[in-house]
Each structure stands twice: as C-alpha cells, then as structure tokens.
Lab assay of single mutants.
Amino acid sequence: MSSSSWLLLSLVAVTAAQSTIEEQAKTFLDKFNHEAEDLFYQSSLASWNYNTNITEENVQNMNNAGDKWSAFLKEQSTLAQMYPLQEIQNLTVKLQLQALQQNGSSVLSEDKSKRLNTILNTMSTIYSTGKVCNPDNPQECLLLEPGLNEIMANSLDYNERLWAWESWRSEVGKQLRPLYEEYVVLKNEMARANHYEDYGDYWRGDYEVNGVDGYDYSRGQLIEDVEHTFEEIKPLYEHLHAYVRAKLMNAYPSYISPIGCLPAHLLGDMWGRFWTNLYSLTVPFGQKPNIDVTDAMVDQAWDAQRIFKEAEKFFVSVGLPNMTQGFWENSMLTDPGNVQKAVCHPTAWDLGKGDFRILMCTKVTMDDFLTAHHEMGHIQYDMAYAAQPFLLRNGANEGFHEAVGEIMSLSAATPKHLKSIGLLSPDFQEDNETEINFLLKQALTIVGTLPFTYMLEKWRWMVFKGEIPKDQWMKKWWEMKREIVGVVEPVPHDETYCDPASLFHVSNDYSF
C-alpha cells in the first residue's frame, strides 16, 4: 500500500475517532442539560424564597438545595474531563465542556465548601437584617432599607448623617470582619485549585478570550484597560469633585475643607457610591423646571407596579418582548415591611425554565424608576439567551450584562422620554440651562461612581493577591479612598471594622 493511502486511512481513522468522541460528548451534555435544568431551578427557587423571606427554615432549605446542586456539578465536572477539548471540533459542544470542566467552588473539600456557603449566607443575613438603634431610645431601631437609606438620601443634618453612617459600619461591618477574612482565604483556595493566581484573578477570567475568531484578550489586559480608563475620566471627575465640594461648603460651611477631601457621609447614600441625591444641593440653574421627576410621580399617584409597567412599555417600544406572566405573578416589587424580612437590594433573577423575576423594595422616586429599567434590562438579556444550552446561558461577561441594564436606564432618564410619559409637563422646553442641569444630574450618577468602583475593586484585587496584610485592611482602604476618590472618613476606623463589606456587593460576593 502506498504512503499516500496510509495517510488517507490515518486521517479517516482520526476523523472517525473525533466524531465518536464528539457524539459521546453531545450525548453526555444532553443528559447533563436535562438534569441540570431541574436541580438548578430547585436551588434557585430555594434561594429566592430565602431572599424574599429570611427565616431559619428557608436558609436551611437553601443550603440543602445548594448542596445538592454543588454535588451534582462536582460529579458532572469530573465526568466532563473525559472529553479532551482538543478533539472537539463543534464550537458549541467545546464551549459547554469548557464551562463544565471549570470546577468553581466544587473543587473544595465537602467541609470547606459547606463552610464557604455558611459564611456567604451568614454575611448576607447580617447585611439584610442588621439594625441600628437610637442610643437615646433603644426601642427605636432602623434597618438599612428603608430607614438608614432614607436618612442618607434626604437628611441635611450633618450629625444625623454621621450617626447613620458610623452606626451601620459599627453594627454590621464589625460583625462581618471575621467572616470576610475567612471568605478571602477560602475563595483564594478555590481559585488556585482552578489554576488561577487568586480570587481576583478568577474574577478577571470572566473577561478572558482565547482564540475565538482570531481574537484574544487576557486577564492582564483587563487590568491595563481599567487603569487606562480611570486615567481618562480622572480630569472630568476632579472637576466634578471640586464643583460638588464648593456646593457642599454652602450646605455644611464649617465641615468642608476648600482644598481637601469630601467627608464620606455627605455624598448622597450610605457609601458615597452614587452622588445622585446631591442634585438638589448642586443644581446649576435651580429656577428651571426640576428634571428630577420624583415629585411628579408622587403627585400622579405612581406605585411600584406603574413604575415597572412603564419600564416594560419602554422596552417594547424598542422592539423587545413583554415580561412574562410569571414575572408579574412572582416578582417581589415592594418591601414586605413587618410581614417578613427580605433582601431589599435590587436584583434580577433568571431562575431557569423561563422563570424570570425582579426583587426590589421599590420606592416612588426617579432613582428607583431608573433602577427598574436597569434591572429589567438584565431580564431582557436573560430572556434573549434563554434558548441557548444551559451552560451557555450567561452574558458575554459581567460588565456587558451591567452595560445592557445601564444603557436602558440612561435612555429612560432623558427629558424627551420623561416628557413623553407625562412626568415633565407638555410645555417643558429644553435649552442650554436645562441641558446643563440634566448633564450634571447624569454626571453625579455616572462620573461620580467610577472612581468609587475602581478603587473598591483595586482594593479587593490587592487583598486577594495578598498585597495588603490583614492587619492593614482598613488603613489601606482609607488611604486609597483619600488618594483615588478624594473622600475622607469622618471618624477614624481601626482594624475591627470592615467598611468594604458594608456594601451589598462585597458582603454578597459580587464583583463589579
């Protein structure tokens, strides 16, 4: 037999072997998808029940369902290793196997995995149920939502704001400190077992692309791009910072340095994350009609249902689908009040099986009107990829998912749209002054938050990498806050605090 014939037969044999492996992989994935749908849905439903009704029974049910899901994933991840990716030609099959071969938290021992889940659930519970009591009246206690958040959004009393700011960190942050220390250790162990340098590197892996249509993007490039983007917006932020400082000097004349940092408790919310609520103090042309339409919403008797129905109309107007019937029947759109304790931070849920929901303790404000559009943007994205195989139902990356939500809320905030839905009067006219007011309001929300987020994530990356010793977490946190964000702590904090974890995203294990 000629050498060319042998070569042809060899190629046929290799192709047949690849085809056999690929067919086996497809069969394996079909079985996995069928089983995963049910187990993931049960786990998601148990998590939803806990988040909307925080009880010991629900946390136990959530843990049990989560353990079943984790055990299943660990088993299936091991089985998926049997299919070598280099022998799979079908890109859809390869991407699913690649996702499943990534072990995630299931790489930890059973004891450590359970401990990590306990830590995460405990931190979430402390954050959502933590109360601050009035020292003069111990029976008068406030949760973060709505009590403390209400103070931080609306109060102009310097000392009341300081009390709310400090009490939240003292009551909740200190409880979270030992848990967060354990969390860092276990998450790093999980990341390294998955061949990442640390948990920050694991997060950045979400943005990594290897040879898809000839395109590559590394975790290191992400760090470079983040640094570059921050340097680009820094001059604009510094101008905004100086303008806000001048306006705060008028409101709090004896508390603000004309050349120094801004006190952290005066920036519009509990964390200084969004400066939106400073608009009334900083509006350049106050004689113009108010483009913050909160009062109009209240006057027109809007409620949470109306807010979300208007958001749905907005999405339908640009060619996107209505929310499902189940969305309206199962979402929690208002604070249950004293009936039950719930996690009030707005979140969009894709539970699986076409079950999409939003959890939000909606208030009738323009801020929540825009947040509703943001969260519904997440749901629209979830619905758009719902037909994909189970392992591919995700956003391109976390940042893109947020961008989908944010672009919709930005569009909904324009005076033209607000006028079209009757929240600005029919005779409202846009001119240079109203446009400047609008742009300032947008800058308070968007530009003001960028250094906050950059600095927070930089601190977390450094902590996970071990570049900040545990006994210097708070020292470095406030050094970076002053240097990068231009914000100063109103009272000193020692290493018993854990100020970063006083933010939902940190205590609940979300990256930005």
Rank of each mutant, 00 (worst) to 15 (best):
S19D: 13
S19A: 09
S19E: 15
T20P: 11
T20V: 08
T20Y: 13
T20C: 04
I21R: 13
I21G: 05
I21F: 12
I21T: 08
I21P: 11
E22P: 12
E22Y: 10
E22D: 08
E22I: 08
E22V: 11
E22W: 12
E23M: 01
E23W: 01
E23F: 00
E23G: 01
E23V: 02
E23H: 01
E23P: 09
E23R: 03
Q24E: 11
Q24V: 14
Q24T: 00
Q24S: 14
Q24A: 15
Q24Y: 15
Q24I: 15
A25C: 06
A25F: 00
A25Q: 14
K26T: 06
K26E: 04
K26Q: 03
K26M: 06
T27Q: 12
T27F: 00
T27K: 01
T27R: 04
F28A: 15
F28G: 14
F28Y: 02
F28C: 15
F28K: 14
L29T: 14
L29I: 12
L29F: 01
L29N: 13
D30K: 14
D30C: 12
D30S: 12
K31N: 14
K31P: 15
K31L: 12
K31Q: 15
N33S: 02
N33G: 11
N33M: 09
H34N: 13
H34S: 01
H34F: 15
H34R: 14
H34E: 14
H34D: 15
H34Q: 12
H34W: 08
H34T: 08
E35W: 11
E35Q: 02
E35K: 13
E37S: 13
E37T: 12
E37W: 14
D38Y: 14
D38A: 15
L39C: 01
L39R: 00
L39N: 02
L39P: 09
L39T: 04
L39G: 02
L39Q: 04
L39H: 03
F40S: 06
F40H: 06
F40A: 02
F40Q: 05
F40W: 04
F40I: 12
Y41S: 15
Y41F: 15
Y41N: 14
Y41I: 15
Y41R: 00
Y41M: 14
Y41H: 15
Q42N: 14
Q42A: 14
Q42W: 15
Q42G: 11
L45R: 14
L45I: 04
L45N: 15
L45T: 10
L45C: 14
L45K: 14
A46D: 12
A46S: 07
A46F: 12
A46T: 12
A46K: 10
W48V: 09
W48R: 12
W48F: 06
N49T: 01
N49W: 02
N49V: 02
N49F: 01
Y50H: 09
Y50P: 13
Y50E: 13
Y50W: 03
Y50F: 01
Y50A: 04
Y50S: 10
N51R: 08
N51E: 09
N51P: 14
I54G: 11
I54R: 11
I54Y: 10
E56Q: 04
E56R: 02
E57I: 01
E57C: 02
E57R: 08
E57T: 04
E57K: 10
E57V: 04
E57G: 07
V59K: 05
V59S: 06
V59W: 05
V59A: 08
Q60T: 13
Q60A: 09
N61V: 06
N61C: 07
N61W: 12
N61S: 07
N61R: 08
M62D: 12
M62H: 11
M62A: 09
M62E: 13
M62C: 07
N63C: 03
N63I: 08
N64P: 13
N64Q: 07
N64S: 08
N64A: 04
N64W: 07
N64L: 03
A65Y: 02
A65H: 05
A65F: 03
A65N: 08
A65D: 12
A65R: 00
D67W: 05
D67C: 02
D67K: 04
D67E: 04
D67S: 03
D67Q: 01
K68H: 07
K68W: 12
K68R: 03
K68P: 14
K68V: 11
K68Y: 12
K68T: 10
K68N: 07
W69D: 11
W69N: 05
W69C: 00
W69G: 09
W69K: 00
A71Y: 03
A71E: 06
A71S: 06
F72Q: 10
L73Q: 09
K74H: 01
K74S: 05
K74Y: 03
K74D: 07
E75I: 00
E75R: 00
E75Y: 00
E75W: 00
E75D: 03
E75S: 00
Q76G: 13
Q76W: 09
Q76R: 00
Q76E: 05
Q76T: 00
Q76M: 00
Q76Y: 00
L79P: 01
L79M: 00
L79V: 00
L79W: 00
L79K: 10
M82R: 03
M82S: 14
M82N: 10
M82E: 14
M82V: 15
Y83K: 15
Y83D: 14
Y83C: 02
Y83F: 13
P84C: 11
P84Q: 11
P84T: 12
P84L: 12
P84W: 13
Q89L: 06
Q89D: 00
Q89F: 02
Q89Y: 02
Q89A: 02
N90T: 00
N90F: 00
N90G: 00
N90S: 00
L91F: 03
L91A: 04
L91G: 01
L91D: 05
L91T: 02
T92S: 02
T92I: 01
T92M: 00
T92Y: 00
T92L: 00
T92D: 00
V93F: 11
V93S: 12
V93E: 13
V93G: 13
V93T: 07
V93P: 00
V93H: 12
L95T: 07
L95N: 05
L95W: 02
L95P: 10
L95A: 03
L95I: 06
L95E: 05
Q96N: 11
Q96D: 12
Q96Y: 08
Q96G: 12
Q96R: 12
Q98A: 05
Q98G: 02
Q98D: 01
Q98I: 01
Q98Y: 02
Q102A: 07
Q102C: 06
Q102G: 05
Q102R: 11
Q102I: 01
Q102V: 02
